[in-house]
């Protein structure tokens, strides 16, 4: 039988060794971990314009992603009033945590009141020399949060691509929003505004699409997640509306 002193000594030695080795590993791998996370998020953004890339985002190396992101993407941040923010303004709004759209903690932003929220826009220069504006939307699925990137064509009306992601939807049901290409590709080509110029968003409906311009089919068996996507798109894109209106007016003036 071991004495109490031995037990205490054993515990302390073990704790110190374990904590030391782990701390060493964590600090050693930290650089790689942050880069991986960054690339993962960037892949999420780029998959909204995957049609333009000519290559599956998921098989790209870290370097390729960083390169495309650096050379073809221009980052902007706007607020709900439609004003574009400068790097200094972003710093003030995030308490010094970020100066660019990619560094903003989007989960934190989602908790702020709408009028203080920062909205990132990634402008992607496609091979066809057109600009695709990638907007960010966030909402709630069945279990947890869902979010997505929606690429808008130059007319600020037609959806050119999209990518959704989720924190913990059911595989085979809600998780299809991310995995089922046939499902999310339905959004491509849909219009946000009706013929009279009113904002209508794209809704996810059950039982067959009736309005080919503004509706897509829901996922069978995942009603709540589908409703979540519907709600997220309508609310999320609406935040960008003031900015979109402003840009459109600007374009008309320039012509």
């Amino acid at each position: 039988m071991h004495s109490t002193a031995y037990i205490i000594r054993f515990t302390i030695v073990m704790t110190v060794i374990v904590a030391f080795v782990l701390a060493l590993m964590v600090s050693g791998l930290k650089g790689i971990h942050t880069e991986n996370e960054e690339v993962y998020n960037k892949k999420g953004i780029l998959s909204a314009v995957s049609e333009q890339l000519g290559k599956d985002v998921n098989v790209m190396s870290n370097k390729e992603v960083q390169e495309i992101f650096g050379s073809k993407i221009e980052q902007k941040v706007v607020n709900a009033k439609g004003e574009e923010l400068s790097a200094d303004q972003i710093k003030v709004a995030t308490g010094g945590a970020a100066a660019k759209a990619e560094d903003i903690d989007l989960a934190k932003e989602a908790k702020k009141p709408v009028d203080q929220r920062l909205l990132p826009i990634y402008v992607f220069k496609g091979n066809d020399n057109k600009n695709y504006n990638i907007l960010y939307v966030r909402g709630k699925g069945l279990w947890d949060e869902i979010w997505g990137y929606v690429a808008m064509s130059e007319d600020w009306n037609t959806i050119a691509g999209e990518a959704f992601d989720h924190k913990g939807e059911t595989p085979g049901l809600g998780a299809e929003i991310k995995e089922n290409k046939a499902w999310y590709n339905q959004f491509t080509g849909k219009k946000l505004y009706d013929n009279t110029g009113n904002f209508k968003s794209v809704s996810v409906v059950k039982g067959g699409v009736k309005d080919a311009q503004h509706q897509v089919d829901a996922i069978a068996g995942a009603t709540i997640t589908s409703n979540g996507v519907d709600e997220m798109l309508e609310r999320g894109i609406k935040y960008y509306e003031p900015y979109m209106q402003k840009v459109k007016k600007q374009e008309i003036k320039n012509q």
Binding site: M25, V26, L29, N36, V39, Y40
Partner: peptide
């Protein structure tokens, strides 16, 4: 920690 470094997704 190793997996996070090798294959993040």
């Amino acid at each position: 920690l190793i997996l996070k470094a090798v294959n993040y997704p």
